[in-house]
Design a protein around this nucleic acid. Structure first.
Length: 212
DNA sequence: CGTCGGATAATCT
DNA sequence: GATTATCCGACGA
């Protein structure tokens, strides 16, 4: 799936990325998968036919998008973690511009730093923000060229991805997972600056309430 | 450049 | 009530 192109067409315009980093999740045999404990309302799309988008909401503020794989009844998916913007960079940058509150006592809004191109879709939630992928795209048909959210080969047809002969593919542990952390099911284009930084799972201490 | 804490709510136990 | 397939800004080197 590396090297394939994900496109989202909205009234605001089209943004497309060439995928540079993905992670595999293997349903019932994979403790890191959302489908590990069976079918629920959230993960239902993963149990359906392949080629559809599984979009989920996490950490109270972020969306991530997966491509459902393997036949109906199985629950496998590939998480799209990063890409390189190849169309609609302006729109992507506007969607990604973070809004900081005006400094205290100031009427002028804080200056917005210009985001480097490599930061636009570096990470699964950033990718979704740049492409404006949200809940309404859960279940979208990625293989239908008429779908607003679609996936295609880098050659404009159904061609395979990989690195297009331009380099190597690396593999390593998945980001942010606790169970199944030893499985090397994260794949990325070697030496690509759009690939997200690896962070091991960091369980946070439960929030303690002040005793007083 | 790196590490660290906070935000914030759906989902599941 | 705990956990989470994350990101951002602050701060220090």
């Amino acid at each position: 799936m590396l090297g394939c192109v994900l496109e989202h067409e909205t009234p605001e315009g089209l943004v497309a990325v060439e995928l540079t980093e993905v992670e595999a999740y293997a349903g019932d045999i994979d403790p890191a998968s959302h489908a590990y404990r069976g079918k629920t309302a959230r993960n239902a799309v993963m149990f359906g036919p392949p080629g559809f988008a599984y979009v989920y909401f996490t950490y109270g503020m972020h969306f991530c998008v997966n491509v459902v794989c393997l036949p109906e009844g199985t629950a496998n998916a590939v998480l799209l973690r990063a890409g390189r913007v190849i169309a609609g960079e302006d729109l992507a940058r506007r969607r990604r511009a973070s809004r900081r509150p005006a400094p205290e006592g100031s009427v002028v809004p804080a200056a917005r730093p210009v985001l480097p191109a490599r930061e636009l879709t570096r990470g699964p939630a950033r990718l979704c923000q740049a492409l404006a992928i949200g809940r309404v795209r859960n279940g979208a048909d990625l293989c239908d060229p008429a779908s607003p959210l679609r996936l295609r080969g880098a050659d404009g047809r159904g061609g395979t991805g990989g690195t297009g002969g331009k380099g190597a593919v690396s593999a390593g542990p998945r980001v942010g997972v606790s169970a199944g952390a030893e499985t090397n099911w994260r794949f990325w284009r070697s030496d690509d600056e759009t690939v997200s930084a690896y962070r091991p799972s960091q369980p946070r201490a439960p929030r303690v309430r002040s005793a007083s």
